[in-house]
Design a protein around this nucleic acid. Structure first.
Lengths: 128, 128
DNA sequence: ATATGTGCAAATGCTTTGCAACGCC
DNA sequence: GGCGTTGCAAAGCATTTGCACATAT
């Protein structure tokens, strides 16, 4: 029950040729530029589906915008994102996971989940 | 140039009598309930001011809503939030900060900033 | 055939802004 | 009195939804 439509294919292709995190609207624009226009609503619907299927990573920027990117790693991981160009490096942080777990336990919290993202300026966009 | 108006005072009072993170709209509602109605726009404007002055913490939920809370600690810190009732514990993670810094440096990123929040169920809302 | 997916436009929901009235300093 | 502040209503934006039409299986 997940059909292979040309729009879905186009969206996956667009994600594939992009290394960085992009907003739904940017992806919509990318598609238009690539000559495969897809309705914005469709982009949103598919991105949502892909995200809940775990096929793409979703992050929420500080101003509440969702940004999407094709996963590189299947395992749980974090991101180091350039706040200027969106360039991204994925990394893992086993020690940290463990540590979060511990702090939570200390306070009697269970069923833990956490987020950790690092934003900065990549070499090419470093100030001065 | 930051005047002491009754609305600003009321907002601070509302924040003071709340332990958990609240959305701007909830705060607006709290004020109305407390008999000190303040225009929603004013709530937003003040919350913004307080946040950039570092007097309140702002978090962005996954669905892109901003939630506010009076700071307990002046220093940089993180939150352990109950996803059921909003109950919050603040904690620091010096080792982690340091570690994030290091990872960023390894990839040539500068001007680092990071987010880390832990969500879970507090003792009172632990499943079964 | 038929359940799904798509496009379009209207509807949401949070947040921001323009502007005239208002009230600290 | 002057300038930051407020209220209100309108504007903005990203995202969602209703619905008729198209389409993969």
């Amino acid at each position: 029950m997940q059909r292979t439509t040309k729009q879905r294919t186009a969206i996956l292709a667009a994600l594939g040729r992009q290394e960085d995190f992009r907003t739904a609207q940017q992806i919509h624009e990318d598609l238009r530029a690539a000559g495969d226009p897809v309705a914005l609503a469709t982009v949103y619907r598919n991105l949502q589906a892909l995200a809940s299927a775990g096929d793409v990573d979703v992050l929420t920027t500080d101003d509440g915008e969702a940004i999407y990117r094709q996963c590189e790693q299947a395992a749980h991981h974090h991101h180091l994102v350039c706040r200027e160009c969106g360039r991204t490096v994925e990394f893992q942080a086993p020690q940290m996971e463990q540590w979060a777990e511990q702090i939570a336990a200390e306070h009697g919290f269970t069923d833990i989940d956490h987020t950790m993202e690092v934003f900065g300026l990549c070499p090419e966009h470093s100030a001065r």
